[in-house]
Design a protein around this nucleic acid. Structure first.
Lengths: 241, 241
DNA sequence: ACCCATATATGCAACTCGCGTCTTACTTAT
DNA sequence: ATAAGTAAGACGCGAGTTGCATATATGGGT
């Protein structure tokens, strides 16, 4: 029997299969705090709890495509930095049935984050409060704009915590910070993003030198306007080598 | 309708679901080279190609449990350092049907690696040849003991490449190297593991100082035996704080 | 007893990074 | 017009780290 004939005769229904979903963590840095967009569940299970936008993976759709589809349908957005985070597969993580969920995160600059929030009224802005330091890891809590905690559905607090942990780890050897900023930005804004993700203050001259020496930035010669003090120079990300 | 009633009435068969499998990368460092254990496929599809040991995830089994089950059944091993790597979900990655595969890697000290190879005769030792430097990433090739390339099935070359990339990244801020060594080891052996994973030579005194200063090591006072030269001191991993 | 190979220790120079401080530039109020 | 205030951006010092070179210790073989 050749391979083609084998495939014709293959019966794919011999195992009981779990459902597979993708959950999307839409992240940004808003007013100095890492933030995400959540949806209040309006049906069972866990009605009234807050959840990440998600959906089942279609049978003819790759995981990456499912994540991009969620970005388009839930956030009305056609491109962003999207990265697979981790796959959550505890048996009882969803009370309906066995659902394995592949978590992705998308990083948005604040303007596009606000646009998504406006275009998709079911999304709610939540500030992520990280109770642990450094690379300790663990779940995080989500707070609404008026400061009250939003109870998170399923294992979504773990997903958000892992997203923050991943960002902290990648911050200083990758370009993730730039995905959280507009195309042109000041060094102060870049430092604000770093401080928000890391949850700690950084020394300004040291940060400045580190960034300029890294070779990942390019001065534009333009300057910020409208400030009532010395305007900062605008930089842009230098294309990778 | 309350949540309990909702769950009773929930119909989990309304979506067509992909199959979910776990592939396990059994890794070690053998004679100064990163290595993995492969199985020659004895049935279609991709008959005769070399693949990672894997299996479908049972409906009542978590992903982590599936990985541990593979470790037990395929490598006859009851514990090891096991970590989830990435989930591969391209639509056409398996010609049989839609199979999403969650890749895990297990790190074994050489002695346990050899024991697994002996206990499970279907496993074959393959040396991983990494064609890229640093954190560039990409697929790797597998070579048998006599140096010939083993053609890899499905996307398993990408999985192995990603495993090497992950190890390179975690080497100097985590304890993964210790998982590739026996309980007591010399600094020379530790450096050999680092050099094999990184694919480059390291400066000995600097490496030595860096490791001892890191506080993750503990001298045992014992010494290596059987060497025809000055025997090195044996160290062990210091338990995390 | 001597030699040799290797482990282990020490010393030095270059580099990096954090931090305090000083200067510069721009707006606004008087 | 001028002074005050604020934040950007530059400079320099000191601590810590890393790589390289060299010296010493150790144990087995001849």
């Amino acid at each position: 029997m050749g391979e083609a004939e084998f495939l014709t005769n293959y019966n794919p229904t011999q195992y009981e299969r779990p459902s597979v979903s993708v959950d999307l963590i839409l992240m940004s840095v808003v007013e100095g705090a890492p933030s995400a967009l959540l949806i209040r569940r309006d049906e069972h299970p866990q009605l009234g709890q807050w959840a990440l936008p998600g959906g089942f993976v279609a049978i003819d759709e790759s995981l990456d495509a499912a994540a991009r589809r969620l970005l388009a349908t839930k956030a009305r957005m056609d491109d962003a930095y999207v990265e697979q985070l981790y796959t959550f597969g505890a048996v009882d993580r969803d009370p309906r049935t066995r659902i394995i969920s592949v978590a992705y995160f998308a990083l948005l600059p604040p303007a596009r984050f606000a646009a998504a929030l406006k275009a998709a009224p079911e999304l709610t802005l939540a500030e992520l409060v990280v109770a642990w330091l450094g690379e300790a890891g663990g779940p995080v809590t989500a707070c609404s704009a008026d400061g009250e905690a939003l109870p998170l559905a399923f294992d979504h607090a773990d997903m958000l915590g892992l997203a923050v942990l991943r960002l902290r780890g990648k911050l200083d050897y990758s370009d993730v910070a730039f995905a959280l900023l507009p195309g042109r930005f000041t060094l102060r804004a870049l430092q604000d993003v770093h401080e928000a993700i890391l949850g700690e203050r950084l020394n300004k001259p040291a940060f400045r030198r580190r960034m300029l020496d890294s070779g990942r930035l390019e001065a534009t010669g333009e300057r910020e306007t409208g400030a009532s003090f010395r305007p900062a120079e605008l930089y842009r990300r230098r294309a990778a080598i």
